[in-house]
């Protein structure tokens, strides 16, 4: 495969469409090829590397690696954590959006800023802060200890860390949308005698369902893939408190190819998420305002 065929392929790819002037099309070819090269180098190569490393030792090794008891336990734990944290954040997003868009109250803009805050805090700092509250010597540590509940280095800690880092996902999809839609329809339903729950389930929810699904999709991807925050609070006990990303880290120190085999599961989840996200944007683009 020579450089000529590569150049021909590139110009074939970039020259589909209209072509105004000669200099403009030169600029176009240069810019499009440069952008494609950036994307290939920065994004495609790492993605390809995951699968290449995962299958380096063949299918049977791959299947063995992901069906190890510790890996299976990590899959179960990741699903459990997501199954608790995601619904919690779904309800949080709905409640926060309802409060932020249908009412005016003092401190509203502060509340809005606080909802967005977790996106700006380093996940590692988030995990550390949780230890300061829920850890053995933390503010609430002795209370939980007295009631025989272990938070840090156990499932509740993992859930708390996951809730922290994924908190804004649903809320920030819903708030701008519900703000744009206003409260008129809800108020009309109220004057017709509908109860609060009825308004919520029959008026509000159908109008935001696609945005809600979009937020939940992103929330779930992050919940299953979070590393920094859960790393701090997990204690890394294989088979007990290792979620999938933590298991990848553990295996990486011991068995390179096995780490990539487990990592490929997370990469597949990522591809699935991106595909569904595109589908939602394409089918229900009007559900999203913002990017």
């Amino acid at each position: 495969m020579g450089g000529d065929t590569l150049m021909a392929a590139i110009s074939a790819i970039v020259s589909i469409g209209v072509r105004p002037s000669w200099s403009a099309s030169v600029v176009r070819v240069v810019l499009v090829s440069a952008a494609l090269m950036v994307l290939a180098w920065l994004l495609v190569l790492p993605l390809a590397a995951i699968f290449a490393e995962a299958f380096r030792q063949g299918w049977s090794f791959y299947l063995d690696a992901i069906s190890q008891p510790d890996s299976m336990a990590a899959v179960r734990l990741t699903l459990t954590v997501a199954a608790i944290a995601v619904p919690l954040n779904l309800v949080f997003g709905l409640a926060a959006a309802w409060a932020m868009t249908h009412f005016t109250f003092p401190g509203k803009s502060l509340l809005g800023a606080l909802i967005d805050l977790p996106f700006s805090v380093s996940p590692v700092v988030a995990g550390m802060m949780l230890i300061l509250v829920y850890g053995k010597d933390g503010w609430l540590g002795s209370w939980f200890e007295a009631h025989d509940v272990q938070v840090i280095f156990a499932l509740p800690g993992l859930v708390l860390a996951t809730v922290f880092v994924t908190l804004p996902f649903v809320a920030r999809e819903l708030i701008p949308l519900m703000q744009a839609q206003g409260s008129e329809q809800e108020e009309a339903a109220l004057t017709l005698g509908a109860s609060g729950w009825r308004i919520f389930f029959h008026v509000t929810l159908p109008r935001v369902r696609w945005a809600l699904l979009y937020g939940v999709l992103l929330c779930n991807a992050r919940a299953m893939g979070e590393f920094g925050a859960v790393y701090v609070v997990s204690g890394h006990l294989p088979g007990l408190t290792n979620t999938l990303p933590l298991q990848v880290d553990q295996l990486y120190q011991e068995n390179f190819s096995a780490a990539f085999a487990v990592a490929s599961l997370l990469a597949l989840l990522t591809l699935l998420t991106l595909g569904l996200k595109r589908l939602l944007e394409w089918r229900h683009g009007e559900a999203r305002n913002g990017h």
Partner: peptide, 11 residues
């Protein structure tokens, strides 16, 4: 969307 640890070991 890619978990950071996965991106880390891939790079």
């Amino acid at each position: 969307a890619l978990p950071t640890a996965v991106a880390g070991i891939a790079l």
